[in-house]
Amino acid sequence: MFCYCDFHIHSCLSPCGQPEMTPSNIARMAALQGYNIIAVSDHNTTGNCRAVIRAAAEAGIVAIPAMELTTSEEVHMLCLLPSADAADEFGKYVYERLPDIRNEPGFFGEQILMDFDDNILGYEERLLINATDISLQDVPALLAVYGGVAIPAHIDRSSFSILSNLGYIDRSLGFRAVEISRGCDPRILLENYPELDNMPYYKNSDAHDLYSMLTAKNGLELVEITAEEIIDIFKRGDVPNRLK
């Protein structure tokens, strides 16, 4: 069955995510926009994943756990995880590798932990948007340990992307699919990086506010709706679109 999917949405736990991006608002907006499957991928944390999974179920859709990991090279990687337990464990691993610098809510925004019903559980005090000390080259193997997959995020962006920070995608890292930003024209990207010809890509919203959660357009053909199957598709690069 064809399922509309957005795997890159920020909740209010990301400092740059707007306060309106609560688990239940995200789930309901996604359902309204026609999505079947979503993933909330906050910066270097999976803290709101369980809440989003339950809120999505209440809204009649499916959420899978995810994180937007910042590598030591300040490259953003979209990480999809197979279960809430795996996400908790991965979240713990990443947190220990995040510098102990406090968030300044006035500059970066609050980092709000919530339950599925949008009750505030607490505020994360450590700044989540910093770089971890996890190097990009170790990311694929690391995700394999947790049964997940890592996808270079918004590779067309002029900061925090594998292309902006490292200049090219090292094929030996084995990434079979990449993410491009919602406003990216694949043809222009290819003009600048012709070596990416035929690279499978997926377009997510990377929404930080409800307004940016666009009507569902992109999706995957799935046999069953499970995180494992989705992870497998990205591992194989079996997504519908190729850079051409």
Partner: peptide, 21 residues
Amino acid sequence: LLSRVMGSAKEGNVWITIMSN
């Protein structure tokens, strides 16, 4: 690398960078 700067630049330093976000 912004996280590096955050940890290493000293008070009152001039910070030279090509980052503009």
